[in-house]
């Protein structure tokens, strides 16, 4: 089960700001979910291969042939902030 400080840390790892007052509710609801997963504790998975995707395909590869790129205009159209033809962001540290 997740403790309160873990919950705060988890919110930061997820990079989602959560108000202090909402932390207990987040903690409680995530813990409720975790508790419900006890249902798989007894699944007999010893030696069983994992399934990552239900597709039965394998080794799907693409030919190395270039296609035209998107225009810079399209690329930057949705950008919150632009500098020349680059995406601009606030300082990183």
């Amino acid at each position: 089960m997740i403790q309160k400080d873990e919950m705060k840390k988890l919110a930061w790892v997820a990079r989602i700001a959560v108000e202090e007052k909402d932390i207990p509710e987040f903690q409680e609801k995530i813990n409720a979910k975790l508790a419900s997963y006890a249902a798989i504790a007894d699944a007999p998975v010893g030696g069983v291969k994992k399934t990552v995707n239900p597709s039965r395909l394998n080794t799907v590869l693409r030919k190395d042939t270039a296609a035209p790129s998107m225009s810079a205009e399209d690329a930057l159209k949705n950008a919150p902030e632009v500098y020349e033809t680059s995406f601009k962001i606030p300082k990183i540290l």
Partner: peptide, 22 residues
């Protein structure tokens, strides 16, 4: 700064989605 910016931006997710991610 960027990390604070993205955390505040990502608070736009509804609470159920936010919890799903966490």
């Amino acid at each position: 700064n960027w990390h604070e910016m993205i955390a505040k931006t990502r608070a736009l997710f509804g609470p159920v989605t936010a919890r799903r991610i966490m």
